[in-house]
């Protein structure tokens, strides 16, 4: 059983919400939950070289708050909120805490089909959503069709790019502009799907361990 609910401060930032959701999901893995229960301290994360940062406090019930507040280790994440495998600041003095934060922020790869279904569950009742969603993985040519409606909004890409998008770690508009994702649908649907991806990212009630 996962431990207690992750506490967030009042008026949390997007990064705080995302990390709290990550922590909730990851704790469904018993091994990671055990590791969390055995780890103490305050772990900071920073997104890229910029100022966006948060601190996860493991002393007491896990809590996430904005900024680097008393962090004993600091891991730098990619824009997709994954540990970029640079050295973790403070790891020499707090190796267990450093290991914990690296585990949290480098989760095992998910299943793009399940991610597509989770996104559709978030999307289907949203005003302005397409009648259906079709996701195509380019290497295998496999297709996941969600919804019973006629016209499907189609998203094509390689597995990693699809996973980042469907889990809300990357942005549809940017990925489509960059060419890593191909899309077929209306322009306003980009907006609605972007919102659903974000909600899927911070939703603590669903998602894989």
């Amino acid at each position: 059983m996962p431990g207690p609910q992750i506490a967030t401060e009042d008026d949390p930032t997007p990064l705080v919400l995302a990390l709290a959701a990550d922590l909730t999901r990851r704790r469904r893995d018993p091994a990671f939950d055990d590791l969390t229960a055995a780890t103490r301290g305050k772990a900071g994360v920073r997104v890229g070289p910029g100022p966006e940062a948060a601190t996860i406090d493991l002393d007491g019930g896990p809590a996430v708050r904005r900024g680097l507040v008393g962090a004993q280790v600091v891991a730098t994440l990619s824009p997709c909120h994954r540990w970029d495998e640079d050295e973790i600041w403070g790891a020499h003095d707090h190796p267990e805490l450093a290991r914990w934060v690296s585990e949290l922020t480098s989760p095992p790869p998910g299943d793009w089909r399940e991610a597509a279904r989770r996104l559709w569950a978030e999307l289907e009742s949203t005003p302005g959503a397409p009648p259906a969603l079709a996701v195509v993985e380019l290497d295998s040519g496999e297709r996941e069709h969600c919804g019973d409606g006629g016209r499907a909004y189609e998203i094509r890409g390689r597995k990693e790019a699809l996973l980042d998008l469907l889990e809300g770690r990357s942005a549809l508009m940017e990925e489509a502009s960059a060419g890593s994702i191909q899309i077929r649908g209306t322009f306003p649907e980009i907006s609605v799907i972007t919102g659903a991806c974000w909600r899927a990212r911070v939703d603590r009630g669903s998602g894989d361990a």
């Binding site: 549809l172 209306t186 306003p188």
Partner: peptide, 15 residues
């Protein structure tokens, strides 16, 4: 930048 995340409404169409 293009603002995203919600139902724009039919009046916006495809630009």
């Amino acid at each position: 930048e293009v603002s995203l995340g919600w139902d724009w409404g039919e009046w916006r169409g495809n630009v």
